[in-house]
Structures are given as C-alpha cells and as structure tokens.
C-alpha cells in the first residue's frame, strides 16, 4: 500500500507588510498590547485585487517549481480555506485552472484554522486508498478581506498567506504516518463569520458587521491549549513514539502564548516548537504549511526527520499529524 510522502513544499506571503505601528486606527497606547498578547509584530496583506486563489497559485507554483513537477501530472488538488474566493464554486477550481492541472479534480475543505491537519489526513487517506498518486494540497487564506479593521480583538492578529505540499505515492517511504482529528460542534459560534451564509442570508442582515469574522478570545485560548496538547499526546501515543524522537513540532501559529502553553502542558522543550507568527500573524489554515516550508528551507528540519503538525480552530476543530519528512 503506498504512503503519502512529501515530495516538495512551497509558500507565499503577499508583498504588502503591515507592522503594529502602522495600525493607526487604534489608540497609540494599545498597539503594544498586540505583541504582548499574541507575539505578532507584523503581518502580510493581499492587495485589493488579489484573492485567495491568487495566493494559493503562487504557493503552488513555488512548490511544483522547486522539483520541476509538471502541473499536468497532478491527479488531485485539495485547497483548505476558510476565506474562499466566493461561496461557490470551490476556490480550488480556479487554482486548478491557473495551474493548468487539466487532469486533476479539485475541491475545497473548510476546517478553519485546523484545515492544514485535516488536509494532510485526507491527502494521506486518498493516496493510501489508491484514489490518486500525485496530490497537491494547498492551504490559502486572505483574512484581511473578512476582518473588521476597527476590531482590535481580531484584525491585528491575522495575516494573509498560502502554503503548499506536493504529496506523491511511494511504496518504500513512510511520509504521513498517523493523524488525529477531532471536532466539537457545540462550539460552532465561538469562531465564525455570522452573516452571508444560509443561517443569516444577506437579505436578513441587520448589522453590517455580521459579515466580518469574529471570535471569543478567552474561550479560544483555553480550547486551543487543551485540545492542541491532547491531539499531540494522542498522536504520539497511538504511534508509540516519544516526543524525544520528534525533531520539530509545527503548531498552528495563532498566538505565541498558546504554543508555549502547549509545550508546557506536554513537558516538551519550547525550543522544539517552530514559531514564525512574529512576522506573519495568524494565517489560519495556511500557517502550518507556511511554517513547514520555512522550516525545511532554513534547515530546521530535513529529510528523515520526524515532524508533528498540530492545529486548532473554528468548529471547534483540532488535529495533528505525524510525518516522516
């Protein structure tokens, strides 16, 4: 039975950077709170005419270009996004068109910030089942388009970006080894965009701000730390692997304090946790893939290393993957 092995990665951050001191809509004294509360100093924003599939396309192009893999050879494209181009059709379909991946079928998944771990698990299952051999998984988000610029509890903490993984079916390599996924739908109001869907269609929206992303910060922190740690622990236990054997833990880059608390709860050195949110903010489901690509390129991880990816977010949802690079 073939395994889903990482053949290449890529990532893309839009050119436009916004530093905390540039956020002039907030009182000067409050700007320091942004880095204190979350560790974010800077984020990238897509241009006005750039949408999610444009970011996805750039990350995918870099991923395929790195190993000169022709898009025509792709069997499948999965795009994780919670900030799609449009309600329909799937954002992945435009990515497929832009890439010229004529043979590939393409579809979206939306597990909000957990989308990276869900996508890796789905890619793994599809390749293991023999459904496809060459699968491109992209996570792309343009949250700057769905945030209220005046909302201090969301806007300063998020950024736009995309990451990509090319998975290929290989018989003699481990690749994705195990995944743990979980959902608590009772918390589906905790992180959401209330308006614009079928629950609150546009013609029934009385508060214009309903079309913006919102979250209950305190609830999210306790959920993310407990479920993030639990998912990693369950993943390692199921695979019968100790944390010492893992080279790097790549968690969703939501908040530095969440990541450090997870490290503490698991009694794992925080130095093993990759952190780049200082520069990019929370890029939702793209964050793990961007960090994975960065860690591979800067030598933090290399071929043969064991890596754990973990994410948590809207739904509420969470997940973790054990991967041999």
């Amino acid at each position: 039975m073939p395994n889903a092995v990482i053949h290449s990665t890529g990532s893309f951050l839009p050119d436009h950077t916004i530093h905390n001191e540039d956020l002039n809509q907030y009182p000067a004294t409050s700007k320091l709170l942004i880095s204190q509360k979350t560790g974010v100093f800077c984020r990238h924003h897509a241009d006005q005419d750039q949408c999610t599939s444009d970011l996805a396309f750039q990350a995918a192009k870099r991923c395929l270009g790195r190993v000169e893999f022709p898009a025509e050879k792709l069997d499948a494209i999965i795009l994780s996004t919670s900030s799609p181009d449009r309600i329909q059709p799937a954002t992945a379909t435009r990515l497929q068109y832009l890439l010229g991946a004529v043979k590939a079928y393409a579809f979206d998944i939306n597990s909000v910030c957990s989308g990276s771990t869900y996508g890796i698990a789905v890619a793994h299952a599809m390749i293991r089942s023999g459904l496809c051999a060459n699968l491109l998984f992209v996570a792309a988000e343009a949250y700057s388009k769905i945030l209220n610029p005046n909302d201090f509890s969301t806007f300063p903490f998020f950024g736009d970006g995309a990451g990509a993984i090319l998975f290929t079916a290989e018989e003699n390599q481990e690749g994705v080894m195990n995944s743990v996924l979980g959902t608590d739908g009772g918390g589906n109001d905790t992180i959401c965009v209330p308006g614009g869907g079928t629950m609150l269609p546009y013609d029934r929206i009385s508060d214009a701000k309903s079309i913006y992303f919102r979250m209950k910060g305190r609830d999210v922190f306790s959920f993310a730390t407990s479920k993030g740690a639990e998912a990693i622990q369950n993943l390692l236990t199921q695979a019968d692997i100790t944390a010492e054997k893992v080279r790097c833990f790549i968690c969703h880059q939501a908040n530095v304090h969440i990541i450090l608390t997870i490290a503490e709860l698991l009694n794992i050195s925080e130095e093993k946790f990759y952190i780049n949110l200082f520069r990019y903010g929370n890029t939702a489901s793209a964050s793990v893939l961007i960090a994975l690509d960065e860690a591979l390129n800067n030598g933090t991880i290399a071929n043969g290393d064991l890596v754990v990816t973990a994410a948590f977010g809207g739904g509420l949802s969470w997940g973790a993957n054990l991967i041999r690079i």
Binding site: Q25, Y26, P27, A28, T29, S30, L33, K37, N150, D151, F152, S153, K216, G217, R218
Partner: peptide, 25 residues
C-alpha cells in the same frame, strides 16, 4: 458579554473616534 482586554481596546478606540479623547486602558 465577552468583556476582556481586547474589548477594552475596542471601546478605547470607539471613544477616541467619538470624543477625540484617549481614555487610559
């Protein structure tokens, strides 16, 4: 509901925009 330090900044921002006064957090 959901009052926290982030909400405090949202109120601070609102007061600044409405009254041109930066109320200390």
């Amino acid at each position: 509901p959901e009052w926290d330090s982030m909400a405090a900044v949202n109120l601070q921002t609102y007061l600044l925009q409405q009254f041109d006064v930066e109320v200390p957090l």
